[in-house]
Amino acid sequence: MLLQGKRLLVTGVVSTKSIAYAAARLALDEGAEIVLTGFGRGLRITERLGEMLGCEVLEMDVTQPEQVEAVVARIDEKWGALDGVLHAVAFAPAAALDGGFLTAPWEDVATAMHVSTYSFAAVGREFGPLLAKAGGGSIVGLDFDAAFVWPGYDWMGVAKAGLESCSRYLAHALGPAGTRVNLIAAGPLRTVAASAIKSFEVFENVWQERAPLGWDDTDATAVGRAICALWSDWLPAVTGEVIHVDGGVHAVGGALPKAAPAAEIPAPALEIAAVR
């Protein structure tokens, strides 16, 4: 049981297809106790999914300090400490996506940065003392590789770049208390968040053409397993990392197609490879 006795807080469970749902389901299978959070119109959905999983659900909008503080107080009352957090929260108004990079007003850009970037640090700050009580614990956030421009991603791409930097600074700030802070850069998945990006097919095509291991954009299990690994005690010296769970696309040059299976490589080429 990889997570036996671990006490975890999971944000972002808004459908059975979400990464957060996959992580929560797998963590429960591995022995963890979990509290979910939701807010706004999605809270009712999170509550229904919480009933399915057998988890308590609390209201928490990460941009509302009083709600975050209330959840901290409830977790302190319930468990007295916390072993892990999943920050699975991101949002950008429509004007900041799909070609809106040069036209989005500051108000919309500010919203994207507040929800998708600053809130990661805020969650780390507020839950840090509870994690310290458990010996440090592990904060995991969700990323999408910010090293490149992705058509239509626009200000969300900028926010994710900020998230990567924020994660490193948070790892530095919370490290003395033993808290590990890492991001998972997942390949594209057909989640609620993905439905907001009109150019999502571009992402799908890139992964179909270039992922050395292949990629199933309907199954978040691989990402959920990586999150559970980071929550566990098996990676005690890993912090400030962006771990790619994307079928290998991040490692492949932009112009390179996926390699042909060995059976399709001419025999002489295989012989040369063997000699080398």
Results as ranks from 00 to 15, higher is better:
Ile184Asp: 00
Ala94Arg: 15
Gly54Val: 01
Ala32Val: 02
Ile139Ala: 07
Ser167Ala: 14
Ser165Val: 11
Ala194Gln: 13
Ala263Gly: 08
Glu56Cys: 05
Ala20Lys: 03
Ala211Ile: 08
Ser165Trp: 15
Lys6Leu: 02
Arg225Trp: 02
Gln67Asp: 00
Ala122Tyr: 06
Ala259Glu: 11
Thr63Ser: 13
Leu9Asp: 06
Thr46Gly: 03
Asp217Ile: 01
Asp246Cys: 05
Val10Met: 10
Tyr118Val: 07
Ala20Leu: 10
Met60Trp: 07
Ala161Arg: 05
Ala186Gly: 11
Val206Cys: 08
Gly124Val: 13
Ala81Ser: 15
Val149Gln: 06
Val14Arg: 01
Leu53Pro: 07
Asp76Thr: 11
Leu131Asp: 05
Leu230Met: 13
Pro257Thr: 05
Pro236Val: 12
Phe127Ser: 03
Ala211Asp: 03
Asp219Ile: 13
Val14Met: 08
Ala104His: 06
Ala132Gln: 13
Ala112Lys: 02
Glu69Phe: 10
Ser18Tyr: 05
Ala112Asn: 01
Val249Glu: 05
Met60Gln: 13
Gly5Ile: 07
Gln67Tyr: 12
Gly247Trp: 00
Ala121Lys: 13
Cys228Leu: 06
Leu82Ser: 04
Gly124Cys: 11
Ser199Pro: 11
Ala88Ser: 15
Thr218Leu: 06
Gly54His: 10
Ala112Asp: 05
Arg180Val: 03
Arg190Gln: 13
Gly80Gln: 09
Ala24Ser: 11
Ser199Arg: 14
Lys78Gln: 10
Gln4His: 12
Lys78Pro: 00
Gly5Asp: 12
Ala121Gly: 12
Thr191Val: 12
Ile19Ala: 03
Asp83Gln: 09
Ala88Thr: 07
Leu86Met: 13
Thr11Gly: 10
Val181Phe: 10
Val14Leu: 00
Glu201Val: 14
Gly141Ile: 00
Ser165Lys: 12
Glu264Ser: 13
Ile265Asp: 12
Pro188Asn: 14
Gly214Tyr: 08
Asp219Arg: 02
Phe120Asp: 08
Leu3Lys: 00
Glu69Gln: 09
Ala95Ile: 14
Gly157Tyr: 06
Gly99Asn: 09
Ile139Glu: 09
Arg41Asp: 11
Leu142Gly: 01
Val158Ile: 15
Pro212Tyr: 04
Leu230Glu: 10
Leu213Thr: 07
Glu66Val: 06
Thr191Tyr: 03
Leu163Tyr: 08
Phe203Asn: 04
Ala237Ile: 13
Ala92Gln: 08
Ala121Ser: 10
Arg190Val: 08
Ala171Leu: 03
Arg41Trp: 04
Arg74Lys: 14
Asp29Met: 14
Gly54Pro: 01
Val206Ile: 15
Ser15Phe: 04
Gly162Asp: 04
Asp216Lys: 02
Gly187Glu: 02
Gly248Arg: 02
Gly187Gln: 00
His250Trp: 09
Ala96Gln: 10
Asp216Tyr: 05
Leu213Phe: 13
Ala146Glu: 05
Gly178His: 06
His172Val: 12
Asn205Glu: 15
Gly175Thr: 09
Glu241Met: 12
Arg44Ala: 15
Ala196Arg: 14
Arg276Val: 14
Ala196Pro: 04
Ile272Gln: 14
Ser167Pro: 01
Val71Asn: 07
Val71Tyr: 13
Pro266Asp: 14
Leu28Met: 09
Ala22Phe: 10
Gly214Lys: 06
Asp29Trp: 08
Leu235Asn: 06
